[in-house]
Design a protein around this nucleic acid. Sequence first.
DNA 1: TTCGTGATAGAG
DNA 2: TCTATCACGAAG
Length: 203
Amino acid sequence: MIPREFFTQPPVECARALVGCELVWGRCSGLVVECEAYAEHGDPACHTFSRPSAREFVARHRAGAAYVYFNYGMHWMLNVLVKGDANGFVLLRAIEPRRGLAAMMKRRGGRSGRELTGGPGRLAAALGVTGRDHGRDFCVSPGRCFLAGDRVEVVADARIGISRAKELPWRFSMADSPFVSVPWLGKRKPSRGYQPRLGQKRE
DNA sequence: TTCGTGATAGAG
DNA sequence: TCTATCACGAAG
């Protein structure tokens, strides 16, 4: 089980390091292939920027706590609280299924591949994450935790689906993973490489 | 491309 | 109250 100290790193470091680790959720598990960092301070896209309840959550919980919320009236989002010198969250955006494939597919209406766990809403649905899991500690039970993984190649680009602070390259993906929700943006312009720019559009 | 669906927060 | 917004995804 990944110890609590892991979640005391700054959010960006933590997110990058989480790629390749295994997320264990009951009888299901999968390798983290995509996640995003959100910083408590100086990041307008972070819930703490506009939601008092999020700031209170940070204050009241330890590093490694699950921050779960309901979005767009239908999707649960699973995050991990990062708390140390710099606080924030890591949003889990995609996993590569490892264990409990049948259970995940059942929850997802028989979908498979990228459609099964590629995307934060899909990931949470596949694992059965709901608001009941809000505040759950990832560092006490082997049934709900992260396991260290092999070192993998990680690529960074801009976060997905946000309207503020789009320029920050705080999305981290496992290179060449077919389970990532949206392919690495840098791949589309290989000759120039990825360079974050203000106001850059994704579509 | 369009739209469902609900929690949250801030304004009036 | 009311309105805007939102770390999305399925259907068309």
